[in-house]
Structure formats: structure tokens, C-alpha cells
Amino acid sequence: MQSDNRPLSPHVQIYKPQLTSSLSILHRLTGIAMVVGTLLLVWWLIAAAAGPEAFAVVQGFVDGWFGRLLLFGWTFALLYHLGNGVRHLVWDAGWGFELTSVYASGWIVVGGSIGLTIVAWIIGYAVRGA
């Protein structure tokens, strides 16, 4: 497939970063990140089915600083992908294609996902009590 001296289309760094393209790339990245996150979900379920000792190992990992960091990232990834996914479904239904709507919905998703991530963790720490 590889041929030399053929013209190439411009690479991504040629273009000025825009909200639309950045959010599109972020949608993919958060999707990939969550696929990695499913490993923890399955590990957690298998450990719960295996017994208290195996379960305590997962809880210990999740409760550590690295586990919390991962969970914080996955919380944002899920809420962002969820919000932007709904944005995509609305487009699929044929709505919101005007440039002003595209930017408005984009900023709503950015603000909403960051805000909800913070709210989720504040509630989480309140539930945990530490």
C-alpha cells in the first residue's frame, strides 16, 4: 500500500484548534478511557462474587490515591461522553446543526460535565464521610 512521493493531506497540527474538533477528539479519547475502565468494573464484580478477601483487595486499590485518580478521570470521561453522546443523538435526529447551536451545545456539555464531575465527588466524599 505504501507509495513514495504522493501528496499528503495536511496533518492535524496545521489546523487551528476549534471547540468543535476538540470536543470530537475528546469524545473518542473519553470513550477509549472508559473501555479501559470497564476492566475495573469487571474486576470489582468478579471480586465480589469470589468473596470478602478478593473484594477487600479491589476496595483497597480503589481507595488508594491512584485508584481515586483513575475514578476521578473516569467520572469526567463518563459524564462528558454521556453529555456529548446525547448531543450526537440530537444531531442524528436532525436538530441543532446551526453553527450557533453547535457551539452553544458544545459549551453546555463542557460546563455540564466539569460541573457534574465536581458535584458527584463532593457528594461522594459526603457519603463516604472522609
Binding site: 473484594f55 458527584a120 457519603v127 464521610g129
Partner: peptide
């Protein structure tokens, strides 16, 4: 979020 910190019995 509602089950944060749950032990094996609760989970």
C-alpha cells in the same frame, strides 16, 4: 456514589 465505602456484605 450511594455505595461508596460499602463492605462485601453491602455490595
Amino acid at each position: 456514589i450511594a455505595h461508596i465505602g460499602a463492605d462485601h456484605t453491602a455490595a
